[in-house]
């Protein structure tokens, strides 16, 4: 298996999003247009995952900036 470049995500604070699932009944119907629903859910949760991604990216940049600074200070290290 090749190395995957994506970092891990953990957004526990956003579990409230799933609360409605617990209190609503199951269903079992054939669907006619599953893709429309698949588009809709992406748009609905996009802000959440986008924020998590932005935070990750920002954190990684901060970490690499500090590492880069330290390298400059100690070029022989």
């Amino acid at each position: 298996m090749k190395q995957i470049s994506l970092p891990k995500i953990s957004t526990r604070s956003s579990l409230w999003l799933l609360v409605p699932l617990v209190f609503t009944p199951h269903f079992a119907h054939a669907y006619l247009d599953p893709n429309t629903g698949s588009y809709a859910i992406q748009i609905a949760v996009g802000a959440l995952f986008g924020a998590a991604y932005g935070f990750r990216t920002f954190s990684a940049r901060v970490v690499s900036w500090f590492k880069g600074t330290r390298k400059k200070k100690n070029p022989d290290a």
């Binding site: 699932l21 609503t24 269903f27 429309t36 698949s38």
Partner: peptide
């Protein structure tokens, strides 16, 4: 799945 059901 719930979203698929809604838009179906």
């Amino acid at each position: 799945a719930r979203s698929q059901h809604k838009y179906a």
